[in-house]
Amino acid sequence: MSNIHSTAIIAPGAEIDPSATVGPYALIGAHVRIGARTTVGAHCVIEGHTCIGADNHIFQFASLGAAPQDKKYAGEPTRLVIGERNTIREFCTFNTGTVQDQGETRIGDDNWIMAYVHIAHDCVVGNQVILANNATLAGHVHVGDQVIIGGLTGVHQFSKIGAHAMAGFASHVSQDVPPFMMVDGNPLAVRGLNLEGLRRRGFSAQRVAALKQAYRLLYRQGLTLEAALSALAELSQSHPEAEGDITLLCDFVAASRRGIAR
C-alpha cells in the first residue's frame, strides 16, 4: 500500500482501510482497525484491541491502546474505541478499558485533543470536546458533549463532567461538574454558567435566561440539594423552551455519586 510508509511495522491481522495513511516508523498491532482516510503520524504506537473510525488525524508520537495503568489488569482483551473526525495531537496516551467497568474506553466524534493528554481506562468522552495540553482524565471519568477542559487540569477517577461545561486552566476536578457550568481552581469552585460557550453554540436568549435562573437556584439561594431540584422541576414547567436543558441538569445532579461541585 503506497500510503503506508515502508518503515512502518504492521502486525499480521491489523485491518487498515486502503485510504488510511500510516507514517514512518509507526507500529500497528494485530488487533487494530483503522478507518477510511485516517492519518497516523510518524512513530505512533497503536496497539491492543483498538478500533479507530474514519477521518481522524493522529499526530506523531501518540500511544493509543496500551494496557490500562491498573494493577488489577490481568491481560483481558479490553478495548479502545475512537470515533470519527478527531484531532489527536502529539504524545497523547489513551488506554484500553478494564473488566471492572465496561471493558472499553470510548472517544466520540469531532473532538480536539491537544498534546500530552492522557485518557485512562474506562473513560467515556463525548462529541465536540476540547481537551487542552496536558489535561489528564483518570480512570472511569465521563465527559459530556461540547465540554472544554483547560490545560494542566486533572480529573479525579469516577468523576463526571456534564455537557457544555468548562473547567479552567490547572483545575483539580474531584467532584462531578453539572452541565453548563464553568469551574476552576484547587479546591474546585463553580464560577458561573459557561455563557460564552452557550452563545457560541446557538442557545437562544430565552434558554440562557432560564439556565441563569437554574444556576441561581442551585448555587446562590442557599437551598439544600433536594429543595433546589424541586425548584428546578417547577422552573422547567414555566420555561418550556429550556425544558430539555433543565431536565439534563436535574438528571445529572440527581444521579451524581461523588457529589457535585458547589
Rank of each mutant, 00 (worst) to 15 (best):
A242V: 05
R220M: 14
R216K: 15
A210P: 13
R258V: 08
L229N: 06
V253W: 07
L223M: 12
T224G: 15
G222Y: 11
I260S: 07
R258D: 08
E243T: 14
E241S: 13
A255H: 10
L211M: 15
A210I: 11
L248N: 13
R216Y: 11
L248I: 03
A227H: 11
S256Q: 05
H239K: 12
F252I: 05
R258W: 04
R258G: 10
Q213I: 05
C250T: 15
S238I: 11
D251N: 15
T224Q: 13
R258S: 09
A228K: 09
R262P: 09
A233Q: 12
A261V: 09
L232T: 02
R220I: 07
V253D: 10
G244C: 09
R257M: 02
L223Q: 09
A209W: 05
E234H: 09
R262Y: 02
R216M: 10
Q221G: 03
F252W: 05
R220G: 11
L235A: 03
F252M: 08
A242H: 06
D245G: 04
A261C: 09
L249D: 02
A228H: 08
A227W: 01
L217N: 09
L249W: 06
A233M: 02
Y219T: 07
F252P: 07
L229C: 11
H239I: 00
D245W: 04
A209G: 07
Q221V: 04
L218P: 11
A233V: 00
L249K: 06
G222P: 10
L249H: 07
L225I: 08
A227F: 01
T247W: 06
A209L: 08
L235R: 03
H239C: 12
L232H: 02
A255L: 01
S256V: 02
E234S: 12
Y215D: 11
A227I: 01
Q237P: 00
A210L: 10
A261D: 01
Q221F: 04
K212S: 09
L225G: 12
A242L: 06
L218I: 15
